[in-house]
Nucleic acid binder design. Structure first.
Lengths: 238, 238
DNA sequence: CGTTCCTTTGAACATAGTCAATAAACGTGG
DNA sequence: CCACGTTTATTGACTATGTTCAAAGGAACG
């Protein structure tokens, strides 16, 4: 977690936003300035969205965070992970569905997302893409939990993580590093940690992935991607 | 489905947006004008978001719609229902997660959501609230599918439907009319229709609800709401 | 080195799914 | 208004997937 010492060109935020829209020099300058004022939130600390300018979104310059629902009986559901480079939209508190808190998973560096002076700028366009992507991933999470088996859930989730990390330049080829325990994975994919463990073993037995500590390597990425039954065509009920 | 014959003041869209923000006379006039140009989409027809002005969102003036993922092997997951009065945000096609199509469940009346000239207008504020609410309900759907039992899922889902319908003035007290088969409910809550059927029977046995055709009455709304383990407090992992 | 957190394993159990058949409700044309 | 075909709801027996509980290894870290 040393956002300050990174050369700016390698920051996940830069890679990601530049991949989502064409950024002008002015956009880049703003991003760089914002990055300089990044704040560090230590792992396990809740991210207070209201400390800074309330209505602004944040950029996650580095590190991982998660949004979670905690039920009164202790059950937990991780709603989404926020990965390096992600835009973090402000979620006003008035949440009829209970608080969806945002917590740092590793030490993270966040800064206020710079606004664009002119409308239709590259930055605004990148933010819009990012929000669209985010909603798509929420949809995917719903389908994963509602209709996929444990095996499929984990494969699909791994593919999603890889896809997202790749967009920010945070993985090398088929290898990625995921700072999560099996229990956290379980809370994300709606299983128990015991079952996550068994399912990961099945994936290794089937030679789809290889696990070394927190590093996961896809041995057969193509099979993984096709194994997951992606949504198809138009969805008019029979 | 006769949006044209409704007196404007009773339109769900009006009730809902007015409940989310204070609307000016200008806002009301715009809404009324938009409502006059509403288009009818018959039940079971896909709603084409690109037919009209591409980037504009739509208002669902009347009727129900749903967004769904259809997997290649036939499994389906309803991602969200769109109820009378809801704002329908444009979802550009480039959806890496597969198409999330939007389909009319009943005949529906939709119109282009009028834009606000000045920023910070009541309309824009209502749209913003609506989007925030929508995201909260996606989160809730995730938690429902990931961590609640079948019984809890259905209770929670019924409560959500009631809450949302109430906001648009589309239910009378504890009674609401839901134009859905048990199979569609199953695709929404991630169960089989057989199990939905059995679970609804359990709810009736427990005297929580009463079902008459498509009309559902909460016999003990308080218990229903408290039965569901709502997210609590801050969510820092142990 | 000892503590703590994380992973792995086994056996028993529970919830929800599957398959198949029947009953009820609905819509349509005569 | 009734008969018929279709969709939807209901039921039962059996199966499967994932959970629970408890314990034992391992790895990481001060």
């Amino acid at each position: 977690m040393e956002a300050q010492t990174f050369s700016f060109g390698h920051l996940p935020t830069f890679s990601r936003l530049a991949a989502l829209a064409t950024l002008s020099n002015g956009d880049l300058a703003k991003l760089e300035a914002a990055g300089r004022s990044a704040r560090i939130v230590p792992a396990r600390r809740e991210v207070d969205m209201y400390e800074k300018g309330v209505r602004r979104s944040l950029l996650l310059m580095d590190g991982w965070a998660y949004r979670m629902h905690l039920l009164s009986d202790g059950r937990r559901q991780i709603l989404q992970f926020l990965l390096p480079g992600d835009l973090i939209d402000n979620l006003e508190a008035q949440d009829a569905n209970g608080p969806a808190s945002l917590t740092a998973l590793t030490d993270i560096a966040v800064c206020v997302a710079p606004g664009a002076d002119e409308d239709g700028s590259g930055l605004e366009s990148a933010y819009a893409s990012s929000r669209r992507l985010e909603r798509g991933y929420l949809f995917r999470q719903i389908t994963r939990l509602g209709r996929l088996s444990a095996y499929e859930r984990i494969v699909d989730w791994l593919c999603e993580m890889h896809e997202r990390l790749a967009l920010s330049g945070c993985c090398e080829g088929n290898r990625m590093t995921i700072p999560l325990t099996q229990e956290i994975i379980a809370d994300a994919v709606g299983l128990t940690s015991v079952h996550v463990n068994r399912t990961l073993q099945a994936l290794r037995r089937d030679r789809l992935i290889q696990v070394n500590g927190r590093t996961i390597t896809f041995l057969d990425h193509t099979t993984c991607q096709s194994l997951v039954n992606r949504p198809q065509g138009s969805a008019v009920l029979a």
